[in-house]
Amino acid sequence: MGFGQLTVELIFGFFSLLLVTRFLGKTQITQLTAFDFISALIMGELLGNAIYDDDTGVVKIFYAITVWGLLIFAIQILGQKSIFFRNLLEGTPSLVIQKGVINRQALKKNRMNINELLNLLRIKDVFSVREVEYAILEANGSLTLLRKPEFDTPTLSDLKIPFQSKSLPKLLVSDGIILSHELQEANLSESWLRNELEMQGYSDINNIFYAEWREEDGLFVIEK
């Protein structure tokens, strides 16, 4: 196989995998279950074997990735329609701590020991089981917990402190470039932005590394 053919197959394979991943949805990345992990491994293996096989061309690479992607998509649709298949493929959450008591049967069922449970608790900034009322081991291996009232973080409502709603910040300037679509979403104009920057002493947009705007806080600027 020449370098030219290898380059073409690598580029084609890369964008094919990217398109299939985008088609299958963000759950392939953000909610990696056992099934998603296996499917991603096999898809990468298919591409790797196809690229370094002299008898395999671009058409066969595309065919292999497409068929496997369609199989994953069909199984995802089946999981959406059937609770049984959803539980079979993705697994079900397990209640590992109930009313402050560790459920040893749930730990045994999930092949988990006490050290692994304590590790997951520490990731959640909990250093003692006595602080936890309920803990659920999710299908993707993460731990969701509910603290006991005496160990829970108080909210502004609990403390009777007045509060106001918050809005998402908008990135208006990135590395000297004005992001027009962000301005439009915030119902702001470029002339308004330039005036605000000048009021803060920034006359040249090219010198702005980062500028964000939030309704309740105004404009925040970081210079290069």
Rank of each mutant, 00 (worst) to 15 (best):
D158G: 00
E185D: 11
N206Q: 14
N140C: 10
I51H: 02
G57F: 02
L17F: 08
G91W: 04
L137W: 03
L159A: 04
T155V: 03
K124H: 07
K108V: 06
V96C: 09
I65P: 00
A50Q: 02
L145N: 07
Q76C: 01
L89V: 15
S191C: 07
K148F: 06
G2E: 11
T155P: 00
E215Y: 14
Q31V: 09
D54T: 06
F15C: 07
T66V: 10
E223N: 08
N115F: 11
A186Q: 09
K160C: 02
K108Y: 05
K124A: 10
V20Q: 03
L19G: 15
F209N: 10
I38A: 12
D53C: 09
I123R: 12
M199L: 14
K60W: 09
V129C: 10
L78P: 00
K109G: 02
L41W: 08
L172I: 11
N207V: 08
K60R: 12
K99E: 15
F85Y: 08
E90T: 10
M43R: 06
W213Q: 00
N110I: 01
N195A: 05
Q28F: 09
R122C: 02
F23H: 13
G69N: 05
Q31A: 12
F23W: 12
V67L: 13
Q200L: 07
I77H: 08
G141S: 06
V20D: 06
G25W: 13
T153S: 11
L71C: 11
D54Q: 13
Y202F: 12
A211F: 03
P93Y: 06
